[in-house]
Write a protein that binds this DNA or RNA. Structure first.
Length: 318
DNA sequence: ACTTGACGGTTACGTCGGAC
DNA sequence: GTCCGACGTAACCGTCAAGT
Protein backbone atom coordinates (compact mmCIF):
# COMPACT_ATOMS: atom_id res chain seq x y z
CA UNK A 1 0.00 0.00 0.00
CA UNK A 2 1.24 3.47 -0.79
CA UNK A 3 2.45 5.78 1.89
CA UNK A 4 0.02 8.66 1.75
CA UNK A 5 0.95 12.23 2.58
CA UNK A 6 -2.15 14.34 3.17
CA UNK A 7 -2.04 17.82 1.73
CA UNK A 8 -4.33 20.70 2.57
CA UNK A 9 -2.73 23.12 0.13
CA UNK A 10 -5.78 23.48 -2.11
CA UNK A 11 -8.50 22.81 0.38
CA UNK A 12 -9.66 19.35 -0.67
CA UNK A 13 -8.71 15.88 0.51
CA UNK A 14 -5.76 15.67 -1.90
CA UNK A 15 -3.03 13.10 -1.44
CA UNK A 16 0.55 12.69 -2.54
CA UNK A 17 1.63 9.10 -2.80
CA UNK A 18 4.97 7.33 -2.73
CA UNK A 19 3.96 5.66 -5.97
CA UNK A 20 3.49 9.02 -7.72
CA UNK A 21 7.01 10.11 -6.74
CA UNK A 22 8.46 6.78 -7.86
CA UNK A 23 6.80 7.05 -11.27
CA UNK A 24 7.69 10.73 -11.57
CA UNK A 25 11.39 9.97 -10.99
CA UNK A 26 11.26 7.11 -13.50
CA UNK A 27 9.75 9.36 -16.18
CA UNK A 28 12.19 12.18 -15.44
CA UNK A 29 15.11 9.79 -15.77
CA UNK A 30 13.82 8.02 -18.88
CA UNK A 31 12.59 11.29 -20.43
CA UNK A 32 9.73 9.21 -21.78
CA UNK A 33 6.53 7.84 -20.26
CA UNK A 34 6.70 4.74 -22.41
CA UNK A 35 10.30 3.93 -21.51
CA UNK A 36 9.57 4.56 -17.82
CA UNK A 37 6.61 2.19 -18.07
CA UNK A 38 8.82 -0.49 -19.60
CA UNK A 39 11.44 -0.07 -16.89
CA UNK A 40 8.93 -0.27 -14.05
CA UNK A 41 6.95 -3.01 -15.72
CA UNK A 42 3.48 -1.45 -15.83
CA UNK A 43 1.43 0.13 -18.57
CA UNK A 44 2.12 3.55 -20.02
CA UNK A 45 -1.34 4.80 -19.14
CA UNK A 46 -0.88 3.99 -15.45
CA UNK A 47 2.24 6.18 -15.45
CA UNK A 48 0.42 8.95 -17.32
CA UNK A 49 -2.39 8.90 -14.77
CA UNK A 50 0.00 8.98 -11.81
CA UNK A 51 2.04 11.85 -13.25
CA UNK A 52 -1.09 13.82 -14.09
CA UNK A 53 -2.43 13.27 -10.59
CA UNK A 54 0.89 14.49 -9.19
CA UNK A 55 0.85 17.58 -11.41
CA UNK A 56 -2.71 18.31 -10.31
CA UNK A 57 -1.76 17.82 -6.69
CA UNK A 58 1.40 19.91 -6.86
CA UNK A 59 -0.36 22.55 -8.92
CA UNK A 60 2.39 22.78 -11.52
CA UNK A 61 3.24 21.34 -14.91
CA UNK A 62 6.18 19.02 -14.32
CA UNK A 63 6.91 17.94 -17.89
CA UNK A 64 6.86 19.48 -21.34
CA UNK A 65 5.37 16.83 -23.63
CA UNK A 66 6.89 16.53 -27.08
CA UNK A 67 7.14 14.08 -29.97
CA UNK A 68 10.06 12.06 -28.71
CA UNK A 69 9.04 11.97 -25.09
CA UNK A 70 8.91 14.42 -22.22
CA UNK A 71 11.26 16.99 -20.70
CA UNK A 72 11.28 18.36 -17.15
CA UNK A 73 10.07 21.91 -16.66
CA UNK A 74 11.77 24.27 -14.23
CA UNK A 75 9.25 23.22 -11.58
CA UNK A 76 9.83 19.58 -12.52
CA UNK A 77 13.56 19.95 -11.90
CA UNK A 78 12.86 21.46 -8.52
CA UNK A 79 10.45 18.70 -7.56
CA UNK A 80 12.86 16.00 -8.75
CA UNK A 81 15.38 16.98 -6.09
CA UNK A 82 12.75 16.68 -3.39
CA UNK A 83 11.40 13.44 -4.83
CA UNK A 84 14.85 11.88 -4.64
CA UNK A 85 15.22 13.06 -1.05
CA UNK A 86 11.93 11.39 -0.21
CA UNK A 87 13.04 8.11 -1.79
CA UNK A 88 16.37 8.33 0.05
CA UNK A 89 14.63 9.03 3.35
CA UNK A 90 12.44 5.97 2.91
CA UNK A 91 15.50 3.82 2.14
CA UNK A 92 17.26 5.22 5.21
CA UNK A 93 14.27 4.50 7.39
CA UNK A 94 14.26 0.92 6.19
CA UNK A 95 17.98 0.62 6.85
CA UNK A 96 17.65 2.15 10.33
CA UNK A 97 15.30 -0.66 11.29
CA UNK A 98 17.02 -3.54 9.50
CA UNK A 99 20.78 -3.14 10.15
CA UNK A 100 20.83 -1.81 13.74
CA UNK A 101 23.15 1.11 12.86
CA UNK A 102 23.81 1.93 16.52
CA UNK A 103 25.96 -1.23 16.62
CA UNK A 104 28.17 0.00 13.75
CA UNK A 105 31.10 2.11 14.91
CA UNK A 106 34.63 2.99 13.86
CA UNK A 107 36.03 5.14 11.09
CA UNK A 108 35.32 5.59 7.39
CA UNK A 109 38.14 7.06 5.30
CA UNK A 110 36.65 8.33 2.09
CA UNK A 111 38.36 9.82 -0.94
CA UNK A 112 36.53 11.99 -3.47
CA UNK A 113 37.37 14.07 -6.51
CA UNK A 114 36.03 17.62 -6.84
CA UNK A 115 33.23 16.89 -9.28
CA UNK A 116 31.92 14.13 -7.04
CA UNK A 117 32.20 16.17 -3.86
CA UNK A 118 30.25 18.95 -5.53
CA UNK A 119 27.33 16.85 -6.70
CA UNK A 120 27.05 13.69 -4.62
CA UNK A 121 29.06 13.98 -1.41
CA UNK A 122 26.91 16.30 0.72
CA UNK A 123 23.78 14.25 0.30
CA UNK A 124 25.49 10.89 0.78
CA UNK A 125 27.43 12.04 3.83
CA UNK A 126 24.37 13.57 5.43
CA UNK A 127 22.45 10.35 4.93
CA UNK A 128 25.30 8.14 6.14
CA UNK A 129 25.91 10.24 9.25
CA UNK A 130 22.21 10.37 10.04
CA UNK A 131 21.96 6.58 10.08
CA UNK A 132 25.42 5.58 11.35
CA UNK A 133 25.91 8.09 14.15
CA UNK A 134 28.76 6.14 15.78
CA UNK A 135 30.97 6.24 12.67
CA UNK A 136 33.60 8.98 12.30
CA UNK A 137 33.93 9.97 8.66
CA UNK A 138 37.14 11.45 7.29
CA UNK A 139 36.94 12.84 3.76
CA UNK A 140 39.92 13.54 1.52
CA UNK A 141 39.32 15.58 -1.64
CA UNK A 142 42.18 15.14 -4.09
CA UNK A 143 43.09 14.54 -7.71
CA UNK A 144 42.06 11.15 -9.08
CA UNK A 145 45.63 9.85 -9.44
CA UNK A 146 46.55 10.70 -5.84
CA UNK A 147 43.37 9.09 -4.53
CA UNK A 148 44.30 5.91 -6.38
CA UNK A 149 47.69 6.00 -4.64
CA UNK A 150 46.03 6.40 -1.20
CA UNK A 151 43.57 3.59 -1.93
CA UNK A 152 46.31 1.18 -3.03
CA UNK A 153 48.32 2.03 0.12
CA UNK A 154 45.31 1.32 2.31
CA UNK A 155 45.12 4.90 3.58
CA UNK A 156 41.57 5.21 2.28
CA UNK A 157 38.78 2.66 2.66
CA UNK A 158 36.82 3.65 -0.39
CA UNK A 159 36.89 6.27 -3.13
CA UNK A 160 33.98 7.94 -4.89
CA UNK A 161 35.24 9.41 -8.12
CA UNK A 162 35.03 9.66 -11.89
CA UNK A 163 36.05 6.15 -12.88
CA UNK A 164 36.04 6.81 -16.64
CA UNK A 165 39.75 7.70 -16.48
CA UNK A 166 40.81 5.28 -13.76
CA UNK A 167 44.48 4.33 -14.07
CA UNK A 168 45.28 1.30 -11.90
CA UNK A 169 42.52 -1.19 -12.66
CA UNK A 170 44.72 -4.12 -11.60
CA UNK A 171 44.98 -3.07 -7.96
CA UNK A 172 41.58 -1.45 -7.63
CA UNK A 173 38.07 -2.81 -7.60
CA UNK A 174 35.49 -0.51 -9.20
CA UNK A 175 31.74 -0.39 -9.23
CA UNK A 176 29.94 1.92 -11.59
CA UNK A 177 27.11 3.86 -9.97
CA UNK A 178 26.11 6.58 -12.39
CA UNK A 179 26.68 7.04 -16.09
CA UNK A 180 26.25 10.68 -17.03
CA UNK A 181 26.01 11.60 -20.73
CA UNK A 182 27.35 14.84 -22.12
CA UNK A 183 24.87 17.60 -22.77
CA UNK A 184 25.08 20.97 -24.45
CA UNK A 185 24.19 23.86 -22.17
CA UNK A 186 22.67 26.91 -23.84
CA UNK A 187 21.17 30.18 -22.67
CA UNK A 188 17.40 30.71 -22.99
CA UNK A 189 16.32 31.86 -26.45
CA UNK A 190 19.52 30.59 -28.11
CA UNK A 191 18.91 29.80 -31.80
CA UNK A 192 20.18 26.19 -31.39
CA UNK A 193 17.34 25.48 -28.95
CA UNK A 194 15.08 24.78 -31.92
CA UNK A 195 16.77 21.37 -32.22
CA UNK A 196 16.28 18.72 -29.56
CA UNK A 197 19.59 17.10 -30.50
CA UNK A 198 22.80 18.90 -31.47
CA UNK A 199 26.02 17.84 -33.15
CA UNK A 200 29.54 18.64 -32.00
CA UNK A 201 29.99 20.51 -35.28
CA UNK A 202 27.09 22.82 -34.38
CA UNK A 203 28.61 23.41 -30.94
CA UNK A 204 32.07 24.05 -32.40
CA UNK A 205 30.66 26.86 -34.52
CA UNK A 206 29.77 28.73 -31.31
CA UNK A 207 31.99 30.19 -28.61
CA UNK A 208 32.63 27.38 -26.12
CA UNK A 209 33.28 27.63 -22.38
CA UNK A 210 35.44 24.75 -21.15
CA UNK A 211 35.31 23.26 -17.66
CA UNK A 212 38.72 22.07 -16.46
CA UNK A 213 37.63 20.33 -13.24
CA UNK A 214 38.50 16.64 -12.68
CA UNK A 215 40.32 15.99 -15.98
CA UNK A 216 37.25 17.13 -17.94
CA UNK A 217 39.43 19.42 -20.07
CA UNK A 218 41.49 16.42 -21.21
CA UNK A 219 38.34 14.41 -21.87
CA UNK A 220 36.64 17.14 -23.88
CA UNK A 221 39.82 17.94 -25.83
CA UNK A 222 40.04 14.26 -26.74
CA UNK A 223 36.55 14.03 -28.18
CA UNK A 224 36.92 17.31 -30.03
CA UNK A 225 40.09 15.93 -31.62
CA UNK A 226 38.43 12.59 -32.45
CA UNK A 227 35.62 14.48 -34.17
CA UNK A 228 38.22 16.44 -36.16
CA UNK A 229 36.92 19.73 -34.77
CA UNK A 230 38.62 22.72 -33.18
CA UNK A 231 36.05 24.70 -31.19
CA UNK A 232 36.62 28.35 -30.40
CA UNK A 233 37.31 28.26 -26.64
CA UNK A 234 36.10 31.53 -25.15
CA UNK A 235 37.18 30.74 -21.63
CA UNK A 236 38.48 27.92 -19.42
CA UNK A 237 37.38 27.67 -15.82
CA UNK A 238 37.45 25.08 -13.03
CA UNK A 239 34.17 26.39 -11.61
CA UNK A 240 30.87 24.85 -12.71
CA UNK A 241 29.02 27.85 -11.28
CA UNK A 242 31.13 30.11 -13.50
CA UNK A 243 30.20 27.99 -16.53
CA UNK A 244 26.52 28.28 -15.59
CA UNK A 245 26.75 32.05 -15.16
CA UNK A 246 28.67 32.53 -18.41
CA UNK A 247 26.26 30.36 -20.38
CA UNK A 248 23.30 32.04 -18.70
CA UNK A 249 24.49 35.50 -19.70
CA UNK A 250 25.20 34.39 -23.26
CA UNK A 251 29.01 34.56 -23.19
CA UNK A 252 29.20 31.10 -24.75
CA UNK A 253 27.79 27.59 -24.68
CA UNK A 254 29.27 24.52 -23.01
CA UNK A 255 29.35 20.74 -23.14
CA UNK A 256 29.20 19.22 -19.68
CA UNK A 257 28.14 15.96 -18.01
CA UNK A 258 24.42 15.88 -17.34
CA UNK A 259 24.99 15.37 -13.60
CA UNK A 260 26.09 19.02 -13.32
CA UNK A 261 23.06 20.47 -15.11
CA UNK A 262 20.78 22.86 -13.24
CA UNK A 263 18.25 24.96 -15.15
CA UNK A 264 19.32 28.28 -13.66
CA UNK A 265 22.53 30.17 -12.80
CA UNK A 266 23.40 31.95 -9.57
CA UNK A 267 22.19 35.16 -11.20
CA UNK A 268 18.85 33.50 -11.94
CA UNK A 269 19.42 33.23 -15.70
CA UNK A 270 17.73 30.27 -17.31
CA UNK A 271 19.76 27.49 -18.90
CA UNK A 272 18.61 24.82 -21.32
CA UNK A 273 20.27 21.51 -22.15
CA UNK A 274 20.25 19.48 -25.35
CA UNK A 275 21.43 15.96 -26.19
CA UNK A 276 24.52 15.39 -28.32
CA UNK A 277 24.04 13.14 -31.33
CA UNK A 278 27.78 12.35 -31.59
CA UNK A 279 28.88 9.14 -29.82
CA UNK A 280 30.79 10.79 -26.99
CA UNK A 281 31.62 8.43 -24.08
CA UNK A 282 29.74 9.25 -20.88
CA UNK A 283 31.28 10.47 -17.63
CA UNK A 284 31.10 7.62 -15.13
CA UNK A 285 30.92 8.04 -11.37
CA UNK A 286 31.76 5.01 -9.33
CA UNK A 287 33.09 3.44 -6.17
CA UNK A 288 36.70 2.32 -5.92
CA UNK A 289 38.42 0.21 -3.26
CA UNK A 290 41.54 -1.89 -2.98
CA UNK A 291 41.26 -5.22 -4.75
CA UNK A 292 41.80 -8.29 -2.60
CA UNK A 293 41.66 -6.45 0.74
CA UNK A 294 38.74 -7.11 3.10
CA UNK A 295 36.32 -4.21 3.31
CA UNK A 296 35.77 -2.61 6.70
CA UNK A 297 32.22 -2.80 8.06
CA UNK A 298 31.85 0.97 7.73
CA UNK A 299 33.04 0.88 4.12
CA UNK A 300 30.67 -1.97 3.36
CA UNK A 301 27.69 0.00 4.74
CA UNK A 302 28.76 3.10 2.82
CA UNK A 303 28.98 1.12 -0.42
CA UNK A 304 25.55 -0.39 0.22
CA UNK A 305 24.10 3.10 0.70
CA UNK A 306 25.74 4.33 -2.49
CA UNK A 307 24.24 1.42 -4.41
CA UNK A 308 20.78 2.61 -3.45
CA UNK A 309 21.57 6.21 -4.33
CA UNK A 310 20.12 6.98 -7.72
CA UNK A 311 20.75 10.56 -8.80
CA UNK A 312 20.45 9.62 -12.42
CA UNK A 313 19.28 12.83 -13.99
CA UNK A 314 18.56 10.99 -17.19
CA UNK A 315 21.75 9.08 -16.71
CA UNK A 316 22.02 5.34 -16.65
CA UNK A 317 22.53 3.54 -13.38
CA UNK A 318 24.15 0.15 -13.63
C1' DA B 1 -19.77 -13.67 4.63
C1' DC B 2 -21.10 -10.09 1.90
C1' DT B 3 -21.15 -5.33 0.12
C1' DT B 4 -19.09 -1.18 -1.05
C1' DG B 5 -15.88 2.11 -2.51
C1' DA B 6 -11.21 3.57 -3.36
C1' DC B 7 -7.34 2.68 -5.86
C1' DG B 8 -4.26 1.10 -9.31
C1' DG B 9 -4.00 -1.62 -13.07
C1' DT B 10 -4.92 -3.01 -18.34
C1' DT B 11 -6.84 -2.67 -22.95
C1' DA B 12 -8.52 -0.26 -26.79
C1' DC B 13 -8.68 3.61 -29.09
C1' DG B 14 -7.84 8.62 -30.16
C1' DT B 15 -4.83 12.56 -31.36
C1' DC B 16 -0.65 14.61 -32.79
C1' DG B 17 3.40 15.50 -35.49
C1' DG B 18 7.69 14.00 -37.78
C1' DA B 19 9.67 10.96 -41.35
C1' DC B 20 9.34 8.90 -45.69
C1' DG C 1 -0.94 10.12 -47.82
C1' DT C 2 0.75 6.66 -44.83
C1' DC C 3 3.35 4.90 -41.16
C1' DC C 4 5.22 5.14 -36.76
C1' DG C 5 5.92 6.33 -32.15
C1' DA C 6 4.83 9.50 -28.73
C1' DC C 7 1.15 10.69 -24.86
C1' DG C 8 -3.96 11.03 -23.35
C1' DT C 9 -8.66 9.25 -22.36
C1' DA C 10 -12.45 6.08 -21.43
C1' DA C 11 -14.14 1.87 -19.99
C1' DC C 12 -13.50 -1.80 -17.44
C1' DC C 13 -11.27 -5.25 -14.07
C1' DG C 14 -8.99 -7.01 -9.75
C1' DT C 15 -7.60 -6.22 -5.09
C1' DC C 16 -8.07 -4.76 -0.59
C1' DA C 17 -9.80 -2.68 3.57
C1' DA C 18 -13.66 -1.08 6.08
C1' DG C 19 -18.35 -1.40 7.23
C1' DT C 20 -22.53 -4.11 8.04
Amino acid sequence: MDKVIRSQAWGGPQTLTFRQFRYFIAVAEAESVSRAAQEIGISQSAITAAVQALELEIGATLFVRHQKGVRLTHEGHQLLRHARSIMAAVADARRAVSVRPEEVSGELNLGVTRMVSGYYLADLLARFSRVFRQVRVRVVEEERSYLEHLLVNGELDVGLLLVSNLGDRQALETELLVRSPWRVWLPARHRLLDSSVLTLAEVAAEGVIMLTMDELAETTSRYWAEAGLRPRIVLKTSSVEAVRSLVGTGVGIATLPDMAYRPWSLEGDRLEARHLSDPVPSVDVGLVWRRGAPLSTTAWHFIEMCREYSPRQSTQRL
